[in-house]
Design a protein around this nucleic acid. Structure first.
Length: 819
DNA sequence: GATTAGGCTTTG
């Protein structure tokens, strides 16, 4: 188990093995022997958990060594730690900022961000079975002694509890409650009300729960903080509450939370994952709890306690005048008046009834003020009233919501702030004031099934380039970029731009731009002060248009490892009927004999070198590269059992000349099939990907530039328009030296190394602005270069750059580097 | 170790 919670001052429980010795972070160098070494430090920064593929995560954190007796110097006491896989997930869930941790089983790599973050020149990498994190926790209060467990990790808590004495919680059936006493209970939610502000100091949630004793018990939960309330999303959810007091009210027993109260919620779906939802920093959960949840689920499903059909429906199923729950994504919002906010949402389905259009001033709209026509047609306008305003204001654009007890209202007469007259059968949606019927809004967690389903549907909708240049969510983008720490926890907010429709877009200074509203294209003239990454290969990323994830190009070593592992695992296997198998032994010097196998699709054999494709098994990465010079398409394969399969998708699935093509691990379902399908004239990467069930990753360029004019400096991204900016495709840049040289020369001409700013040419650029928000609601504005094409001067015209800006260029296609 | 509310039969 790579992740342990240690309880301070306790002699029992997991311990750091005695053979491990601690070294100071400051002493880590390439020549340090890392065998059996650990480092200890306090978590001073914790980045978000970034999902690279299902069950493959990455997380970056910074730890700082605190005690000075170990330090040889006070230099380099803080170090970036990158965690992979399950460990990253456990860390994300179980470790908080300020926690003291010990890392073991790490490897090192050079820190690419050392110049920027001034941290240790190396990063610690924690991946694989040897990697391990120990977390120190203060001794728990007597009441919860030994009950610490890691959030959401039942196996972990089981591990911890086996080794420590656990005074068990006992749970009482709802039929056995007696007034005046405090109990721990489990129950199935049959009714709930979102938390609302009470007249006292707290918010109040009302829920009604039941269990096998068939009692319906009303619970009033008072908590000051919203996050401490039960995280109930729907009827049928299961709650576990500790320390609730039973009391009589109106001839029946009800429950109220009391001191030390805690609550954990589970989805009620039979057979679903038992994932605890809670804000508790520590709680305990073991096999017995899992069993209780599963018993309650199956009991509830046999009882017809509530309609099996969820109250949540898609917009496509909405009936006028009905009440329903809606799972949706928030695209924009605008205040209407002091009692009403407009939320613009979609769920990717088309309502059969025409949706009401609402005209709102663009300058009061948060998010894009308009979308493409097609998208507008499926966006629902939701008017949110009164007590729900507080919650609505806090919602972040892009978040996934469940809106409870929404009313589909025909006509516009009841809609405030409208001037346009619209036909009465246009539907508007209202979340009325009050909390009856569970009315309210919940933000759905990203990992919920509802959100996963929503994302699937929304991704199928054609992307709206005009308004959403960033298909990728910003937090993933920022993470790929090793962004400054202040942005690391930034949550994604929908981005927006509009094409500037004025042919004479006014030029503005950078400082004016910073004051300016979003949702516009801006025209600036500036010099390039610096850029990142300095090494071009680091600017190349792989982007999946399906799941919109962005990832690094796997490094050579990793890929070579996959090849060598695959070739050493060779077993004799059967050729599929559509291919000829041809195997021979290779005895390249210095390596043991290996079987090298060619698999030739029969139909393509005659032209295998010209337009064909071969499957290759048993070669090293280097051999594959060499062979790729002679064959049009090479798909590396391996034996698995007696079958032939593709390699792990961390490796390229296809070599085409000097180009390598990668597939998305998350979105591909690979299968080995005959590529020589009838009617295919040219076999290219798209055809091969399609046949093999691979979701092709697109090679993209991503750079960060620092601009400067007389008034200010500004950091901007160059991404979606990078290829047209350089006039070079990212794919070419990945495969061909000439293309790389061209980009490098361009960057050097815009930002001459070692030159003074006088030698940096002035650039006319169009920029789009978009916004991210951090957890405390602070706005972060980001910029991207758009619609700007670099026009290179003819080579004979290599004169020094004029210090004065060039004359204004024609719009749309922009100039300019005179250097 | 007080207080809050104690579902609902909808409405802009």
């Amino acid at each position: 188990m790579p992740f342990h919670v240690l309880l301070e001052g306790m002699g029992t429980g997991p311990q750091i093995p005695a053979h491990l010795t601690r070294i100071s972070i400051s002493l880590i160098t390439t020549s340090t022997d890392l065998t059996n070494k650990v480092v200890k430090g306090k978590v001073v920064q914790k980045g978000p958990l970034v999902s690279l593929a299902p069950d493959n995560f990455i997380l970056k954190t910074v730890i700082q060594e605190e005690d000075s007796e170990l330090n040889a110097s006070s230099q380099n006491l803080s170090i970036n730690v990158v965690l992979f896989g399950e460990l990253a997930k456990n860390f994300s869930q179980g470790v908080n900022q300020e926690d003291m941790v010990v890392a073991a089983g790490f490897t090192m790599s050079k820190s690419p961000t050392v110049r920027k973050d001034n941290l240790h020149p190396f990063n610690l990498l924690l991946s694989g079975d040897d990697a391990c994190i120990y977390v120190f926790r203060p001794k728990p209060p007597p009441d919860d002694r030994s009950l610490l467990a890691n959030k959401r990790s039942s196996t972990l808590s089981a591990e911890v509890s086996r080794k420590t004495k656990v005074p068990k919680y006992t749970y009482v059936r709802l039929g056995d409650l007696t007034a005046g006493s405090v109990f721990n209970v489990y129950g199935v939610v049959v009714f709930f009300k979102q938390p609302f502000k009470s007249r006292g100091t707290d918010s109040c949630s009302i829920l009604k729960i039941t269990d096998q004793s068939n009692q319906n018990i009303t619970c009033s939960i008072f908590c000051e903080k919203l996050e401490d309330h039960p995280k109930i999303f729907q009827i049928g959810d299961i709650v576990r509450m500790h320390r609730v007091k039973a009391q009589f009210f109106k001839d029946s027993i009800s429950l109220v939370n009391t001191f030390g109260f805690s609550v954990v919620t589970f989805d009620g779906t039979v057979g679903g994952a038992v994932e605890p939802r809670t804000s508790s920093r520590s709680f305990h959960f073991n096999q017995e709890d899992r069993q209780i949840v599963e018993e309650l689920r199956s009991w509830a499903s046999s009882q017809a306690l509530f309609p099996t059909v969820s109250a949540a429906i898609h917009l496509s199923a909405v009936q006028p005048k009905s009440y329903f729950d809606l799972n949706c994504q928030l695209l924009a919002k605008a205040p209407i008046d002091s009692t009403c906010i407009l939320l613009r949402v979609w769920d990717g389905t088309r309502c059969p009834h025409t949706l009401l259009k609402v005209n709102v001033e663009p300058n009061v709209t948060e998010g894009p003020s308009s979308f493409s026509k097609e998208k507008e047609n499926i966006i629902a306008n939701v008017f949110v009233y009164d007590n729900h305003l507080d919650c609505a204001r806090k919602l972040k654009l892009g978040s996934f919501l469940r809106i409870y007890n929404l009313r589909a209202n025909p006509g516009h007469s009841s809609v405030p702030g409208l001037t346009s007259s619209q036909s009465v059968d246009h539907l508007a949606f209202h979340l009325h004031g009050g909390t009856s019927y569970g009315r309210g809004i919940q933000v759905l967690p990203e990992d919920s099934l509802d959100v996963q389903e929503l994302k699937r549907v929304l991704e199928a909708f054609p992307h709206d380039d005009m308004n959403e240049p960033f298909d990728l969510n910003d937090s993933a983008l920022l993470e790929v970029w090793s962004t400054p720490p202040e942005l690391l926890d930034g949550k994604a907010v929908k981005s927006s731009t509009e094409r500037g429709d004025s042919p004479d877009m006014p030029l503005m200074t950078l400082s004016e731009l910073k004051q300016c509203e979003l949702s516009r294209v801006h025209h600036v003239r500036a010099q390039l002060r610096s850029y990142e990454p300095r090494r071009l290969h680091q600017a190349l990323k792989l982007y999946c248009s399906k799941c919109t994830s962005m990832q690094e190009i796997p490094d050579e070593e990793l890929v070579a490892g996959i090849f060598s592992e695959a070739s050493s695992d060779y077993e004799p296997c059967n050729a599929p009927p559509w291919a000829l198998l041809s195997a021979f032994l290779t005895d390249s010097p210095g390596s043991p004999d290996r079987a090298l196998t060619l698999l030739l699709p029969r139909q393509l054999m005659s032209e295998v070198k010209t337009k064909g494709l071969i499957f290759l098994m048993g070669t090293t990465l280097e051999e594959t590269y060499r062979l790729a010079a002679s064959y049009q398409n090479i798909v590396p394969v391996r034996s698995s059992g007696r079958e032939i399969t593709l390699l792990d998708l961390s490796a390229p699935f296809l070599f085409r000349g000097r180009k390598r093509h990668y597939g998305c691990k998350r979105c591909s379902e690979t299968v080995l099939r005959d590529p020589s399908a009838e009617g295919v004239k040219v076999i290219d990467e798209k055809v091969v990907a399609e046949v093999l069930g691979v979701q092709l990753l697109q090679c993209v360029l991503l750079m960060k530039l620092e601009l400067q004019d007389a008034t200010d400096t500004l950091e901007v991204f160059l991404w979606t328009h990078a290829e047209s900016f350089f006039g070079v495709s990212a794919e070419d840049a990945a495969a061909n030296q000439e293309a790389q040289n061209s980009i490098r020369q361009t960057m050097e001409s815009l930002c001459p190394p070692g030159g003074s700013m006088d030698q940096h040419p002035w650039l006319d650029l169009f920029l789009t602005a978009y916004q991210t928000k951090d957890d405390v609601g602070q706005n972060q504005t980001c910029y991207q270069i758009c619609q700007t094409t670099l026009i290179k001067p003819p080579p004979q015209n290599r004169t020094p750059t004029p210090p004065e800006p060039p004359p204004p260029p024609s719009p749309g296609s922009e100039i300019t580097s005179a250097g």
